[in-house]
């Protein structure tokens, strides 16, 4: 291909106030302004959102799935991080 590549942007949308922006997909656009416009046309045709973020895909650093065990496995051996680990007599009531 002789044609230069159009940059890729990740699109995040806040569906309602009170909710976090959530990843919905991606668009190609020359700059941020056009990425916002394309995201609006592509991902909000039916009232899906109140706010859009676009982020250059290249700016995202992701964890490697190969490191999954090293990163996330240790929490499996720490049940004491959960409330159900602790015995409280029922007479005490809800805690």
């Amino acid at each position: 291909m002789t044609e230069p590549k159009m940059p890729l942007w990740e699109v995040f949308i806040r569906a309602r106030s009170g909710l976090a922006h959530r990843h919905v997909g991606s668009v190609h656009a020359a700059d941020a302004e056009m990425a916002l416009q394309a995201a609006r046309d592509t991902y909000t045709r039916r009232g899906e959102g109140l706010s859009i973020w676009v982020v250059p895909s290249a700016a995202i650093t992701a964890s490697d799935p190969a490191d999954k065990d090293a990163l996330f496995e240790p929490t499996a051996s720490k049940p004491y991080r959960h409330p159900t680990f602790y015995d409280i007599p029922p007479e005490v009531g809800h805690m």
Binding site: M1, K5, G25, V27, T42
Partner: peptide, 16 residues
């Protein structure tokens, strides 16, 4: 567009 974006996650470019 949704589908091109899904295909691109497999390492092929939109232009291609």
């Amino acid at each position: 567009l949704y589908l091109y974006a899904a295909a691109e996650t497999l390492g092929v470019s939109r232009e291609e």
